[in-house]
Simulated assay, not measured.
Amino acid sequence: MITRFRIALIILLLVLWTLVLLPVQLLALQYDWRVRRTLPRYWHRVACYLLGIRIRVHGKLETRRPLMLASNHVSWKDIMVLGAVADVAYIAKSEVANWPVFGWLAKWQKTVFVEREQKRKTGEQVNEVADRLAGGEIIVLFPEGTTSDGNRLLDIKSSLFGAASAAVPSAPDGVVYVQPVTLAYTGIYGMPMGRYHRPIAAWPGDVQLVPHLMGVLKAEALEVDVDFGEVVEFRKETNRKVAAATVVSRMRQMLRNRLRPPNP
């Protein structure tokens, strides 16, 4: 009974918090006010607090622009976690736009929806991301293209880094900065989280959303470590595949060190 009451209270508070911020965000989107970039961060911070997601940040967000973040992808919770620590927008597959609740939230944060099956639209989508980067926005790329089990980094699609290369001509100094970021869900109920409990945090594609969401609500306390790594510079003469491989290599090492710390 207490668990049901707590879950109902969390949902109610999230709805109320959304209704408070939504009118301002909709106006900001319509008139392209700068506040549209910062307002979602406050929503995500409160959402993480209510859901019991505790965030530990290691390293620093790059201050130079244009900036793209390349992050591993474990769950829909990644959106809230990264959104709570930085003013970011996301690149997501087009199907997300039609998801209940999460699709609306993605649109309100001005997510770039990518239709991977329609090659003729690829150029338009890359140009949109490039324009947003050149405009000073921080764009988050999940180069795995899907969610993982949280224990490893999946194979990377280097073509997704094309937007960073496309933004180089518009960059003030001819450089686009790509910063590797990793999210590692490492704790539950104040205890270290091993492989057995990580499915509570992870959301592989074959798991239904509602049961997974209820599991997160019942868990009460999840801990996640966000690591910001060393930036890779994309310039006019940069080989995209080589630069992407460098980003991925740093992501793998950061995630490995966080999940399986080296012995002292």
Rank of each mutant, 00 (worst) to 15 (best):
I11D: 02
K119C: 00
L61A: 10
L160A: 04
A106K: 05
H44I: 01
P199G: 08
D78L: 11
G145T: 05
D155I: 01
I91H: 02
S165K: 11
S165F: 02
N263S: 08
R260T: 14
A47L: 03
D78S: 09
E62F: 08
H212K: 09
L9G: 07
M254D: 09
I156Y: 00
E62Y: 10
V96H: 10
I2R: 15
I79Y: 05
F142S: 02
Y185Q: 06
A92S: 15
R256D: 15
R65K: 15
L255A: 07
V85L: 05
L9H: 10
T3E: 02
A245Q: 10
A166L: 05
A244F: 03
V248P: 00
R260P: 00
V101Q: 10
E237P: 04
I7C: 10
E233S: 12
P40Q: 08
R45D: 04
G136W: 08
R64F: 10
A134P: 11
A134Q: 13
G135P: 04
R152P: 03
F161I: 09
V88S: 03
K60M: 13
K77Q: 09
R54D: 04
A89V: 14
P143H: 07
M254K: 06
G229E: 12
V175R: 02
G136L: 06
R41V: 03
L255Q: 03
L154E: 06
V114D: 00
L141C: 00
F102V: 11
L51T: 12
A243F: 08
K157I: 01
G187H: 15
E144C: 08
W99V: 07
M1F: 05
L105W: 13
V74Y: 01
L27C: 14
R195S: 11
E144T: 05
H212Y: 04
I156E: 01
L105N: 05
W99S: 09
R120G: 03
F102G: 00
G145I: 06
A47V: 09
V207G: 01
L141R: 07
E220N: 14
G187F: 06
L12T: 15
G174Y: 08
Y42T: 09
W43M: 07
L50Q: 12
L133D: 06
E137T: 05
M193S: 06
S75M: 01
A92W: 13
A221I: 00
G83I: 06
G145H: 02
F102Y: 08
R56D: 15
L69K: 07
N151Y: 03
A164T: 06
